[in-house]
Design a protein around this nucleic acid. Structure first.
Lengths: 196, 196
DNA sequence: TCTAAATTTGGTCGTTCGTTCAAGGCGATC
DNA sequence: GATCGCCTTGAACGAACGACCAAATTTAGA
């Protein structure tokens, strides 16, 4: 536990980022304050601006790796998915997983809205989102759904975040609805001339 | 223009609500302040708490009729939609319509996230969302898609809000992707034994 | 015209905000 | 064991916050 000063510094840095992620989900990006994160992390308020250039910098530094990690997880999961059902199961599992805590349901929405107002964060979140879509499209193509893979990937990505947003407000929204619909779409052959 | 005192009161009340809706989209629900709305509406700061019990009360009173109006619009549009293509065109048109201003894209997300943190507002927003889903399901059923109308409605509703959230961050996300996918789903016969 | 009610207005209260800063502690290096 | 660099700590700053209120203004009804 007790290493050099550098190690202790890294520890408080991570404690601050963990606290920031918790609080963004609980009270919302715009309502997180320096004293709030500091208290939650168990460090004095001055630590925030020693380790991060600003409060918004802390929030961005905390959420960006989180989302990138989630995308990386999706990439490897979908890459390893066995067939269509394997991928659908993973997507459904992810949505159901975040149902445990309501504040986690709100987190992705908060990140997207904050990113939509920041030049730098917006570009990085958009890149992560594009990687997720690319992973979904690659999985679809690998399963033989090559005709409109990109469009389906856009809708799947939107549905996942939209479902979380709606479930945050109404817990009775069925998290398996997406899986049901996907099964219907993807069992339908999408490799032939179905267009226009 | 100049009526009684009551009419002037109603005018400032509405000016405040209009300003609130603008600012929620621009700076986010949690970052709207009393002085901000008052200045935008062109009224003194004291007016806010004369016409509304609190700042959050103003935001709720402003956004709830907005969302209810949108749902009512959807109900009548989908009820009058001619066939599957008519409904798809209306949905696509709605998404593309909100593309003009980026702050309008963020508005629905802000409302949902705020509603997820408020008992009262959450219940009313959830009710509006349920009405929208019901309208979509009714339209699908009327078009002969009676097997999984509810599940498809859940996904459509989630996709619409998810698309807005994603387009707020990345304007290159195709707003027509949902229409393309819907055409594929709904042209597929959903009335027969397609399950399992 | 006079009164009662509704609205307007801007000042003020106590609190909390993001950020800065100087003083200190503490382990590593010479 | 002195020195140096990183990290900690909490006090302090001015600005902005939500809410409140008393006085001024305006309108409707008598």
């Amino acid at each position: 536990m007790a290493e050099g000063a550098a190690a202790r510094g890294a520890a408080t840095r991570e404690a601050l980022m963990r606290a920031a992620i918790e609080l963004i989900g609980e009270v919302g990006w715009g309502s997180v304050s320096t004293r709030m994160v500091a208290e939650r992390a168990g460090v004095p308020t001055g630590s925030v601006h020693y380790h991060f250039r600003s409060l918004d910098g802390l929030l961005a530094d905390a959420t960006l790796p989180l989302l990138n990690g989630l995308v990386a997880e999706a990439e490897s999961a979908l890459d390893a998915a066995e067939g269509i059902d394997g991928g659908i199961d993973w997507i459904t599992g992810m949505i159901s997983h975040y149902t445990a805590d309501a504040s986690e349901l709100r987190l992705s929405g908060e990140i997207f809205l904050a990113a939509a107002r920041s030049e730098r964060l917006g570009a990085e979140i958009a890149a992560a989102l594009a990687r997720f879509r690319r992973a979904v499209a690659a999985w679809l193509t690998r399963c033989g759904r090559d005709r409109d893979a990109e469009a389906v990937a856009v809708v799947i990505a939107a549905s996942v975040d939209g479902l979380m947003l709606h479930r945050a407000v109404d817990a009775s929204v069925d998290p398996n609805a997406l899986a049901d619909v996907l099964r219907t779409i993807l069992k339908t052959d999408g490799t032939r001339r179905n267009a226009k």
